[in-house]
């Protein structure tokens, strides 16, 4: 019996080395190119940003927010009638095409084709949505929150009518001018995003917040309402989720946010938007 106990105690001590924290082989990761390119109906400019990714495991890059731009790729967008090639602007670190006013049309499908210097192909596609949104309303109420300094909180109520048919995706941005300058209306997430799942044709309402000084009796505000492609919606939604909730990607108990991509052979998004801007004064 005594020997048995010695053996057990021996096993405990021998085996505890590296028992709780074990270094594993770092997972393989290849360089991926992240793409951000959004087409806007009836706009003149197209731009695309391409960056190299960074490996997480291995030598630590202390400049972790800096990513190397991809400068030598061939970036083409193939439309229904013509193909354009975007040129790289080294100052802005982006690929551009500045005369596409007749190129980006609602209802048309566009193909992105990127060829890297080592021959790698990256592709995607998007269809620019229509924007026939109606019933746009916007108003606000102000509630004093700090009378001593004359500061009021504003609750912006805005609504619009979902376009007929299913499968529409929206993005809303709002700004207002007050004594604090021009500010962004704060929705629940940085971008207010909505889809028409289970509410086809219904009114889509949302509330945003802002602050103003009491003596600003009149207020200019505007709303940028975009009808966006599904992939851009999913990408922005995942970025919203990432921005709002993912506080520690290394925490194993945090449910990770998977950033949406529709880029074959890379990361990011090739999306499209059809926007309308509405101004209000009260």
């Amino acid at each position: 019996m005594k020997n048995l106990i010695y053996i057990i105690i021996g096993l405990v001590f021998i085996s505890c080395e590296d028992q709780f924290l074990k270094k594993l082989p770092n997972p393989e990761a290849e360089d991926q190119i992240s793409v951000y390119c959004v087409l806007f109906a009836d706009q003149a400019q197209i731009k695309a940003e391409l960056y190299h990714s960074k490996k997480i495991f291995g030598p630590v890059d202390t400049e972790f927010e800096d990513y190397d731009p991809v400068t030598d790729a061939v970036v083409k967008i193939i439309g229904p009638n013509e193909t354009i090639t975007l040129e790289y602007n080294s100052t802005l670190e982006e690929y551009q095409f500045n005369d596409s006013i007749d190129f980006q049309k609602a209802g048309d499908t566009y193909y992105l084709e990127i060829t890297t210097v080592d021959g790698k192909k990256i592709t995607s596609q998007t269809t620019i949505p229509f924007n026939t949104i109606e019933g746009i309303k916007m108003d606000y109420d102000s509630i004093p929150v700090n009378p001593r300094f004359g500061i009021s909180e504003m609750l912006f109520e805005s609504s619009f009518q979902d376009m007929p048919g299913e499968g529409h995706y929206y993005q809303l941005l709002g700004r207002y001018s007050s004594g604090f300058g021009t500010e962004q209306i704060q929705y629940e997430t940085p971008l207010y995003l909505a889809d028409d799942k289970d509410r086809d044709g219904e009114s889509i309402d949302q509330t945003g917040r802002g602050y103003k000084i009491e003596y600003d009796n009149t207020l200019d505000f505007y709303m940028v309402l975009q009808s966006i492609s599904r992939d851009l919606y999913l990408y922005n939604r995942s970025m919203n989720s990432y921005a709002n909730f993912t506080f520690d990607p290394d925490n194993p108990f945090t449910e990770p946010t998977i950033i949406h991509t529709n880029i074959e052979g890379g990361l990011g998004v090739f999306g499209s938007s059809n926007q309308k801007v509405f101004n209000f004064t009260k």
Binding site: P27, E28, A29, Q32, S34, Y36, V38, F40, Q43, E49, Y51, S53, K54, K55, I56, F57, F64, Y67, L173, P190, L191, V224, N236, M239, N240, Y242, A243, P249, P256, I259, L267, G268, V269, S273, Q275
Partner: peptide, 13 residues
């Protein structure tokens, strides 16, 4: 996660 990359959190046109 095996890589990080540059994402666009906000965009206005």
């Amino acid at each position: 996660a095996t890589t990080t990359s540059k994402g666009v959190a906000y965009q206005e046109y």
